[in-house]
Amino acid sequence: MTRSTRESFLSRLHKPLGRTSTITNVPTPPEVDESIARLVQPDDDLFAVFCEKAAATGMKVHQVTGDSLYETITARLREENVRKLSVSMNDPMATESAIKSAGFELHDWKAVPGKDGLDAQFDLDAGITDVHNAIAETGSLICQSGSSHTRGMSLIVPWHLAIVKKSQIMPDLIDFWNDRSSLSPDQMPASIAIITGPSKTADIEGVLITGVHGPAMVDVFVVEDQ
């Protein structure tokens, strides 16, 4: 069997489009009319909208200050009987030492490198991360992959705890994608996850169940004074 090549594949497209080669002038796509598509305005109370929408998705939202953050997190960890957990490698808001001194066992990223380190995420009770942005419109968390951000910590662990700074909240999905749209393909994070609530399914008779594959619980700590 001769395999399709880029050329042969494209020529399949040219015929129904009524041409013999790809158009050379750049087409102008329809603009995204914000008067239609935008659902949250920049001057809305983003903090309030975010908290309301995030809570509506089934995430637990905690409004904290820089001072009450550690206390709130450790209280929640105790409440859920967490044994072992991880904190993002960039140690957001210096949470690591607070957690450690509260007596929780922390996953040591440096001690278990490579595939084993990834695998170890399956055995943790919880993961604490910061976010790259949050979206008021939908109450979403944006978690990008990077050198100090694994994909697993917002995905593999049964409980994801996310720290959101008030200044990170963007009004609308439109704002987030406008912001990211000037990056070249190799500058784009390999993985951008827009996370909106705990993992859900309603496949069996439409009964809503949380925690099918991804985290069953998501706690969001919105830090007001940062």
Binding site: D186, A190, T196, S199
Partner: peptide, 12 residues
């Protein structure tokens, strides 16, 4: 309003 996980992947 939106699916729980929207995963946008750009390369490995």
């Amino acid at each position: 309003p939106i699916t729980v996980y929207n995963h946008i992947m750009t390369g490995p």
